[in-house]
Design a protein around this nucleic acid. Structure first.
Length: 790
DNA sequence: GTATTATCTAAGTCT
DNA sequence: TAGATAATAC
């Protein structure tokens, strides 16, 4: 409380402006309190700063934090915004502002209002994998060819329809759409769409798009809800407005219709989600829809060097479709952008890794100062391997997240089924895992019965006694066992603490045992992942208690399992960071990098048909989107950009030759440097050569940077020691002369004793007993065992 | 109904 | 290359 007063007194002493923190345009955008406002914010021009100070300023002028709504696209952006508001106005007020992603805020509202549109408030959420599986099942039932009706494409089309407010009915009535589907030989897409929507509804489930779609539906169909939230949210702020689609815009417009206190911030040059229905048109429409709109342009960049800004401007200039804007900076000129050329994708990885190593030493930087950005997730592997080889810690954002791993999804499916018995994808996932004798035939019959009666599979299963279906009595009793097991979980979900129940489910469902009994290394790591998930729940429960102490601290046992599910359902793994251990190189797609900044940025895979993507090269508008993507990538960097490409790479399992990306050529060469190839790492060099290369100062840094910092030598020696140690331990196979009875060490299983040997050398197999992991059969050429003693 | 093996085929970006 | 699916054996 004291803190709160203190913070506010500082505030009021500032007479309401922030000359030290904000430039004049930023100040105007912050101080202009009421009415519609649009801020066109160039890259690095302090857009988040405007948003956060604006929220602070609103609170300062006595606006109730509960009536401020700030919407972002990513959890990360939301979290950062919240943190920064906390810094300015203090904890309590900031916590009360509704800051979140479109999806999470709407999910929160829908939980409260779900019954008004026929959903249970405990609805569960399908992620993309679940949605695809559901669609796959429908395609199969219809007897259609899933090579024509590719589930991913079908989902895409359904998603785009929802985001453009096209219902299944409108879809099947639209002549253009029907013609399109006929031409692409997929006339039954509309039917699939309708069935998919029905199934989700019957299962009490929403997919990502439904969270938006149903929010809009709620506001359209239930006037009392519309009025409630129109009155509640007096001030609305939207981040990354250029990425909103029609559906999102429709919702926002409805919410803001009463007060018209809406502030949108965006940059058309950074619109990179048109493929998902994002509509640049929204920016233009906004000007039409709000006649008394105030527009502010932020053009001064505070992030990057002149060279980077100039290079980025060269690129974006090639686009026809754009609002006029001139981004400029007062920052230093900085270094030229360095172009790296490699022969293969793996070589590219090596060069980038070595260049990072080198820059780290030359400029005395941390790992976390570097980011490697790529167009597609598949490119991360070469980078990972190279970084691992020279022992540079890294962290991958995106890709297959923790929550998308099979074993994690399996356990979560039990949780989801516990909370929402009707959740069909979760049901199908675990009904026979671990194996309990309910086979495909039985499941199919349940699905048929569900389809015929327009009910969920669960309802069929739970009413087997009253409404039998043609399955064997053995199968029936197994199904009933399963039903009663889930029912007992569901019962406990209302009384039991999340962590306790989660543990109970993990063990009594048999998942943990199944993995434990299977002694393969894969199962071991899956087992560990589940333990990690359980630990996560434990931590969640503990934090939850801390955060809710002031509230209902009576003898409340919560949080419940449903609280945990709601907390994680919309998380992606970029949200599961470990804050204590964050000195790591970041690897991510450019899409994921939007809104972030790093001192040194490596943009890799700059090749035709990769970046720009081959799927985009045939249309002007898609090429422009790729170009904006490149613009986003360039403007992530503060100090220096490296552009790299390979002249060949493996794709679809075979080697293809690549040409440098057109985007590189669009940068005026006066902003580029091409290091003499002799100075770069030579191809196929052995470990000896690479060490020499490290020691030699590369030309690129020699010409642009004056001196080598003095601790260079020391760090070099240290880093090499680490790298070497790692290699010696497990890279070399020194199991020649391995005999029964010897003590060995394995990278994962630790110490063990050889019980048995069979086969001859290239394929020799050993049976080893490990104290920590039990008995294993290992192929020597893969296991990389190390002999400890005889 | 279950487990193992063989074959296939997919790889664009996110909530 | 790896994960998913189909085919096969048990």
């Amino acid at each position: 409380m004291y803190l709160w007063v203190f913070q506010h007194s500082i505030f009021f002493s500032g007479v309401g402006s922030y000359p030290d923190e904000l430039n004049s345009v930023q100040q105007q955008a912050v101080m202009c309190k009421d009415g519609p406002i649009m801020v066109i914010a160039g890259a690095g021009s302090g857009k988040t700063r405007v948003l956060t100070y604006r929220i602070a300023q609103l609170i300062k002028t006595q606006v109730n934090p509960f009536s401020i709504l700030a919407l972002t696209f990513t959890n990360k952006a939301a979290r950062e915004m919240k943190e920064r508001v906390v810094q300015i106005v203090g904890g309590t007020d900031a916590q009360n502002v509704w800051i979140g992603t479109f999806h999470s805020i709407f999910a929160r509202i829908l939980r409260i209002e779900a019954d008004k549109i026929g959903y249970p408030s405990n609805f569960t959420i399908y992620d993309t994998i679940d949605s695809k599986n559901q669609i796959k099942a429908i395609i199969k039932e219809y007897g259609l060819d899933d090579k024509v009706y590719k589930p991913g494409l079908v989902l895409n089309r359904i998603s785009l329809s929802k985001n453009n407010l096209i219902t299944p009915l409108l879809y099947s009535e639209d002549i253009m759409i029907q013609k399109e589907d006929q031409q692409s030989n997929k006339p039954r897409l509309g039917e699939i769409y309708q069935t998919y929507v029905n199934r989700c509804f019957n299962a009490g489930v929403m997919d990502f798009d439904d969270l938006l779609y149903n929010m809009n539906y709620l506001l359209t169909e239930i006037p009392e809800v519309l009025h409630k939230f129109q009155h509640k949210f007096q001030y609305i702020l939207i981040d990354e407005f250029q990425d909103t689609n029609l559906l999102q815009y429709s919702i926002v417009k409805k919410l803001a219709a009463l007060n018209e206190n809406i502030c949108v911030v965006g940059d058309d040059a950074q619109s990179i989600y048109a493929f998902r229905g994002a509509n640049i048109q929204n920016i233009l429409n906004f000007q039409k829809d709000y006649q008394d709109l105030q527009v502010y342009k932020l053009e001064q960049n505070y992030r990057s060097t002149k060279n980077i800004i100039n290079a980025a401007n060269c690129v974006i200039k090639k686009n026809n479709q754009q609002l006029h804007k001139e981004v400029w900076t007062h920052n230093e000129e900085g270094e030229l952008l360095t172009v790296l050329k490699a022969l293969t994708d793996n070589e590219e990885g090596r060069q980038v890794a070595h260049s990072i190593f080198d820059s780290k030493v030359n400029y005395q930087l941390f790992n976390k100062d570097f980011a490697i950005l790529y167009r597609t997730n598949a490119q991360s592997r070469a980078m990972e391997e190279a970084l691992r080889k020279i022992n540079i810690p890294y962290r991958i954002y995106g890709g297959l997240s923790f929550y998308q791993r099979k074993e994690v999804k399996d356990l979560l499916a039990y949780f989801r089924l516990t909370i929402n018995n009707k959740d069909e994808e979760s049901l199908k996932r675990v009904i026979n895992y671990p194996a309990r004798g309910i086979g495909n035939r039985t499941v199919e019959k349940i699905m048929v019965a569900a389809e015929e009666t327009n009910r969920s599979m669960w309802e069929i299963m739970a009413n087997l006694k009253k409404h039998p279906i043609p399955i064997s009595s053995a199968a029936e009793s197994k199904v009933l066992d399963f039903v009663s097991k889930i029912k007992s979980y569901s019962f406990q979900a209302g009384t039991e603490n999340a962590y306790k129940l989660a543990e109970l489910i993990a063990s009594s469902s048999g998942i943990l045992k199944d993995l434990y009994d299977n002694q393969s290394p894969e199962a071991l790591s899956k087992y560990e992942n589940l333990q990690e998930l359980l630990n996560g729940i434990k931590e969640f429960a503990e934090n939850w208690h801390k955060n809710n102490l002031d509230g209902e601290s009576d003898d409340f046992k919560g949080p419940y399992l449903s609280d945990f599910l709601q907390d994680i359902e919309l998380l992606t793994d970029s949200d599961v960071g470990d804050p204590n251990d964050n000195d790591k190189v970041s690897l991510m797609t450019i899409h994921a990098a939007k809104g972030l900044e790093f001192p040194f940025v490596y943009i890799v895979g700059l090749e035709e048909n990769l970046f720009p993507s081959q799927l985009a090269v045939n249309s002007r508008s898609e090429i422009e989107e790729e170009r904006r993507l490149f613009y986003v990538a360039l403007t992530r960097a503060r100090k220096k950009v490296f552009l790299s490409y390979a002249t060949s790479r493996y794709r679809w399992g075979n080697l293809i030759y690549c040409e440098p990306s057109r985007f590189m050529e669009e940068i005026d060469s006066k902003y580029l440097s091409f290091p003499d190839s002799l100075d770069g790492p030579p191809m196929n060099r052995g470990p000896q050569r690479s060490i020499n290369w490290f020691r030699k100062k590369p030309k690129s840094t020699k010409t642009t940077h004056g001196h080598i910092p003095s601790p260079l030598k020391k760090s070099l020696v240290q880093l090499h020691k680490v790298a070497k140690k790692d290699n010696q331990d497990f890279e070399y196979d020194d199991t020649k002369g391995l005999q029964v009875g010897m003590e060995v060490e394995h990278q994962r299983f630790g110490f063990g004793k050889v019980l048995h040997l069979e086969g001859v050398l290239p394929n020799q197999k050993a049976t080893v007993f490990f104290s920590s992991a039990g008995q294993k059969q290992l192929l020597l050429k893969y296991a990389k065992l190390k002999i400890i003693e005889n």
